[in-house]
Nucleic acid binder design. Structure first.
Length: 432
RNA sequence: GGAAGGGUGUCCGAGUGGUUGAAGGAAACGGUCUUGAAAACCGUCGUGCCGGCAACGGUACCGUGGGUUCGAAUCCCACCCCUUCCGCCA
């Protein structure tokens, strides 16, 4: 959530920026409730002070009938005042939670994803002297993807990924862990982008794939039950991304400033109900109920949060360039960055089967919005406590990136070339 | 699934209904000592909210939510979570 003090001090700005994000919150209503709440709270607190004084005076026991009577009266008054405050407090909190994070000033203002801005295009759409095929055509022909049998067993939007395609996935994982675990790579990207950052490499993490409601809600990421699977029996949700179980890792903790930045590269299977997207992308492995993902998560100080975001985008581009995949860098507009985000970038990779750029990566910078709810704070060397800043970003969503490789690296005979940087992890194989 | 034990501050850990925002220890910070460091010694040291320019004052918080009481970390009820043992299983 946003800092209420910030909202009090910047009511008009908050109203305007919320509107830009498509959240029609009534800031004046919120502030009215805030004032009401503070008034009631003041009254309750002075009544409580009186109650405490009475109790204090009676320390040691043997109170008289009169004293007990007076104590009871004040107690009754406190209860009445609290009963008035409770609903006000509840509506105040509900409204406060509706306020989205403020977009940074350079986020393009737009009403829908159509107004996202292409910041740059790297590489050219892959050229073929034959009609390029889709992932499912190539994958099914070579028995690398079997969705039909998966549908029999698990339903639509599931697949058996097989054979060399599995080896390719593990090659990508190995490659990413190698690059992100290499301080020299991080250092180069930090320097090339003029970032004031530590060169600390990313620590690989295998997080749990399920999480409980309470931390999930606190992460501000459980906004739509349509996208997330719930295990009713056990109050557990299947994570829709490793970021959900990574950002909640330090829930309710105070981290020493010296520990920051904390940089993780998580690997987890991700589950999505895709309830709102019936009929969309039903072919191939672009939009699945289950896919594996390598996800970066960084906890940092407030000063370095934005640079950490830039570093993560630089890493995404670096990885795409290493795989020599053509892509566009998309600056998401206010309507598309999402409620907890201050800024957001997508990478859309070129898919020859569809002849278009489609989203394969996203990078989210939440400033302190997420950490305030998660109560993750940094103990600064000055002794102050400060919510940390959080960033998450896709390294690779394996389903989509496998599809991108299959389609961009296809030969006319249906074989698929192995990207150069992955060959060493594929036993030197040239094609699959 | 069966049984037991626990959730207290940055961490460990004590806590008899009022003198407890909470002993003691560790860590951290400041200092004394030292050529320097360590050790030793002295001091400081929870968080949120409200009010105040501030010093500070008020209030809440001992897993969560209720209850009893003039007064609850402490008593009662419900729930959540963790650990250990047995069973089952990878």
């Amino acid at each position: 959530m946003l800092d209420i003090q910030f909202i009090r001090d910047n009511a008009e700005l908050v109203q305007e920026k919320s509107r830009q994000k498509g959240y029609d919150v009534k800031v004046t209503d919120l502030l009215k409730l805030d004032e009401e709440r503070r008034n009631l709270q003041g009254k309750i607190e002075s009544l409580r002070a009186e109650r405490n004084q009475i109790a204090d005076a009676l320390k040691g026991g043997n109170p008289s009938e009169d004293q007990i009577k007076r104590g009871r009266e004040v107690k009754e008054q406190v209860a009445q005042a609290e009963a008035l405050l409770d609903p006000v407090e509840a509506s105040f909190l509900a409204l406060l939670k509706k306020v989205p994070n403020m977009p940074l000033d350079d986020v393009p203002v737009g009403a829908s994803e159509d107004e996202n801005v292409v910041a740059k295009t790297v590489g050219e759409p892959t050229q073929f002297d034959f009609e390029p095929k889709h992932d499912y055509q190539l994958g099914e022909a070579k028995d690398l993807i079997d969705k039909e049998r998966a549908a029999k067993v698990a339903g639509s939007r599931f697949a058996y990924i097989k054979g060399d395609l599995v080896r390719l996935q593990f090659a990508i994982i190995q490659f990413v862990l190698q690059e992100l675990g290499d301080e020299a790579v991080i250092k180069r990207l930090v320097e090339e982008n003029n970032l004031q950052l530590s060169t600390k490499p990313f620590t690989p993490v295998l997080p749990p794939a399920l999480l409980r409601t309470e931390p999930y809600v606190a992460s501000a990421r459980l906004d739509a039950e349509e996208v997330t699977y719930k295990i009713e029996q056990d109050d557990l949700w299947l994570n829709a991304s490793a970021e959900h179980t990574l950002c909640t890792m330090y829930w309710n903790e105070i981290l020493p400033e010296e520990a920051l930045p904390i940089r993780y590269i998580g690997y987890s299977t991700s589950f999505r109900r895709e309830a709102g997207s019936y009929g969309k992308d039903v072919e191939g492995i672009f939009r699945m109920h289950q896919f594996d993902k390598l996800e970066m998560e960084v906890f940092s100080t407030s000063e370095s949060g934005l640079d950490e975001h830039k570093l993560m985008v630089a890493i995404q581009e670096y990885l795409m360039q290493q795989l020599q995949l053509p892509y566009q860098l998309i600056k998401k507009c206010t309507a598309d960055i999402g409620k907890p985000n201050a800024t957001g970038v997508d990478i859309n990779c070129w898919f020859p089967g569809q002849q278009q750029y489609r989203e394969t990566h996203t990078a989210d910078y939440m400033t302190d919005f997420q950490a305030r709810d998660l109560k993750i704070r940094a103990r600064r060397t000055s002794g102050e406590l400060d919510p940390v800043h959080t960033n998450d970003a896709t390294a690779f969503a394996l389903g989509r990136i496998l599809k991108a490789i299959i389609e961009n690296y296809q030969n006319q005979d249906g074989s698929i070339r192995v990207p150069t940087v992955l060959k060493s992890f594929m036993g030197g194989a040239e094609t699959i």
